[in-house]
Structures are given as C-alpha cells and as structure tokens.
Design a protein around this nucleic acid. Sequence first.
DNA 1: AATACTTGACAGTATGACTATGATGATGTA
DNA 2: TACATCATCATAGTCATACTGTCAAGTATT
Lengths: 245, 245
Amino acid sequence: MVSHPRTKSRKDRIMDAALRIFAEKSFQEATISEISKEAGVSEATIYEYFGTKEDLLFAIPEKISNDTAKESQAVLPFIKDVEGRMRAILFSYVQLYQNNPHYSALVLLQLMSSKRFRQTAAHEAIRRSAHSLLEIIREGIADGTFRSDADAYLIRSMLMGTIEHLFIHWHMQGMPRREKSIMDMLDPFLEIVLNGIRAKKEQQGLTLHLNLEDARALGQLLQADPTLNLPKSGTKAPRMTKNKK
Amino acid sequence: MVSHPRTKSRKDRIMDAALRIFAEKSFQEATISEISKEAGVSEATIYEYFGTKEDLLFAIPEKISNDTAKESQAVLPFIKDVEGRMRAILFSYVQLYQNNPHYSALVLLQLMSSKRFRQTAAHEAIRRSAHSLLEIIREGIADGTFRSDADAYLIRSMLMGTIEHLFIHWHMQGMPRREKSIMDMLDPFLEIVLNGIRAKKEQQGLTLHLNLEDARALGQLLQADPTLNLPKSGTKAPRMTKNKK
DNA sequence: AATACTTGACAGTATGACTATGATGATGTA
DNA sequence: TACATCATCATAGTCATACTGTCAAGTATT
C-alpha cells in the first residue's frame, strides 16, 4: 500500500519494528500481524524472510552482535595492567547496551531466560566477555594486585550483575535521575570494587590511626629523634614529615 | 483416576507441578495438558481453580511471598547499625531464593520481564526491600558511615544485582563449584562493598604506614614517653601497646 | 440415604502461528 | 512495446493450544 522508497530495506524495517514491539510488550504478547502493520509489510513477507516468529526474534541479537564490532577483545592484549583491562571489557559491555536501548531491554529481560539464546553468537559474545573477565580477575589475584582471598566468580558477578541491574531498572520503572548515564557511573563503580579487593600494601607493616592531638605529639617526637624515618612503604606520605625539616 | 489421599491439596499439587514445569521449560513452552498430567488432575480442574494459564503463573509468586514471613522487615528497627541492617535485608533476599530454587529460576529469569509481575504482591515485596536498602544506604551516607560521594542507587544495584546474577548463573549453566553456597559468599561480598564505600576514619586524624623496623623503633619511643597514648579513635588497637605494660 | 460440591471426560470455540496459492506490480531484457 | 522474472501482497485455509460448557460420576457432609 504505502511504499517507503528511501527508507531502509524491508528486512531491516521488519526487524526494527519487531525489536520495538518485543521490547515494549513481550515476545508472547506481540503478534506477527501487529509487527507487519508497524513495519508496513504484509504478514506473508515476514514469513518469507524469517520463517517463524521465533526465528525473527533470534535474528535480532545476531544482527546486533554483527553490527557491533569486536574491538574490545582486539584491544585487550595491548592494555598491560589488569585493572585497565577489566575496565575495557566493562566499557564495551555498557556501550553495547547503551547504544541499543530496546535491545538491552529485550536481551536482559527476555532472551536471557531462553534456552535457544544460549546457542546464539550473541550469547557466545557475552560468554566470551564473561570468561575474559574471569581470567583477568584470576590473573590479578595471582600477581598480587588483588587480595589473595578474593573470589573471582563473586567479583565477576559483582561487575556484570551490577551493570545488568542498572540497565534493567533503567528500563523498568525508570530510575529517578536520568541525567546521570550508566556510563558515567562506570568509573566510580569500578573504583568501589577495586578499592574493596585490592591487596593492602601495608600488609608487611603496620597501620596506625591517630587523632590530631596524638599526631602532633608524635611529630614532636620525630623531630627530636631523626633516626626514626617513616614511612618508606606507604603510598601517602604523612603531612608531619613535610612540616619542618 | 489415581487419587492422592494423603498428599497435598489438588491446588497445591497443581501449583507445584506448574512451578516445576514453568521453571524447567518456560511459560510459553509449557502446556496446560502437561501440567495436568504432572499434577494428576484433569485440565478442567486447573481452569476451575485458576481461570487462565497466566493466572496460574501469577498465583505462584503470590503463594511464595505469602508463605515467606516478613520477619526481615519486622526485625530491621531493632538493628541499630547501618551495615547490620543492610546485611539483614540481603540475608533474607538470598534466603528466599535459596529456599525456593525452582521459584528463583522462574522469577529471576521469566517473571521479572513481565509487566504483570510488577503489579503483584511478590514484586511489591521486592520493591519494598529495594527501597529499604536505598534508604539505609542514604542514611549511612548522611551519618558519615559511608563516603559522602557514594551513589546510593549504584550501591543498591551492586548489592541486588550481584546476588541476582549469582543466582541466575547458578541455575543456568551451573557455576563450576557448587559446594560453596551463595549464602556463604554473602559476608565476603558485603565486606568488599563496604570496604569500598566506608568513609575513611583518618579523615579526622592521620594514618601512618610503617614497616616492621620503624614500628619497632616507634614502640620503644612510646615506652620511653608514656604521655603519648594512642590511638583513642582508631578501631584496631595497635599490637605494640599491648606488648608490655 | 439425600444433598451439595468436586472432578473428569469430552465436545466445541477462538486465537494466532503458519502454509498455500494466485494476483499485482515493479524491474530488467529482447 | 512485449515479455519474463521476481518480490510482495491478499486471501483462504490448516493446526495447535488456550479456554468454555455441559453433564455424568464420584466424594463428602448431614
């Protein structure tokens, strides 16, 4: 009836419409008839292209994961430090969902629960990310970057689960303040996790917590006896040693 | 045909069977016919009790959340410290899913994505937990327990998202080592998060990082001059003061 | 035993996924 | 222009399954 000459191909229009409707309603509640109207094609055309309704559903993640280049995996070997590589994986994970909001609602809320999705290339990509992440965490534990008693599976669930949870709630009732994007939260988030699992440097020494009064008294003592020079190992130099030399 | 005189009521048997089949296959793939055979009743009986297949699905979370007493909410006011209350909420959250493995597979992977679920009492219970958690985190930020720049929404997603992710993967392909339960991970997990967001105590004082040599020297100084008594404010008493009195 | 209620068997309806088929219209080629 | 080819559409029809209605048989309660 109405022709769409300068727009995308019919196949793309069908998939776009399907993605929107599947995400808005749900796979079961959506009907082929509705999708065909939304896409401006006949039902027969949809069956011509995709065969079944389920095949239409699963064509979507294949398309998205094809459209999404796999730079993140390629870049990984060039990032030396463990924490930088963790960040790179999470970054691309957030980016994918952020760039495809309908898709993120579809995959996080519906496809994840489907057995068939676990055999798709899209799921394989997620699995690969998850596996890389696990390996990197293990590496960090092995080389002493992270605490030796850290649980790599737990850390991974913290990283991926948090991000998925943020996206799910983003789409569900909508988080109150939308002005702050999930991408903006990535670094504060990572900092909290890393803060919590980084190996403490002072394990080979001691940590003292002093109030101001005590600190001042200690400062006087130190000036009186210069043989006591501290600290060599700590990351933050205490202010008092800088006061007067 | 076969009567089950001493077992549960038909209604319970139907719901048990439905829960099992819905979790094993999926809502759409399960048929009423199959559930009726599994439960040992006729299809008509299922419609008699529940009306529609969807109503049967949503009767399940109502039942579970009714069976689950709401002690955790009741206990909260009696726990004074912020971190203890956070732990209590997460504990009951984990407990619910751990005690109902089929249910957790059903709700986390399927119901969560359904619009109707968001109008059930079960979802309301989850929302209430989530809201309590948010309030407690905010309280912790306000009273200085947590860092003032912490993002309460992010923290909440970390807490709930991690647990949901752990359960989802527990059920999906099964995490490699099952001997460690998710409940066992709760405290290490909370410790990491809290570690990452706790306000640093040394804001009102100073933190010194000493190596062993320096620490020993400081210990001698302290014994020589007893006017310097430290620390009053720190949580961990340094070992050296206990050595000799 | 009589009555009320529950359950089952079975026939039948409605919906939506899917198929088959022929018409239509655009495009390319002689 | 005439013809062939192909994509798309409209339509009619099949099938599976959710769901309804009805009545007979069983069970419980009195």
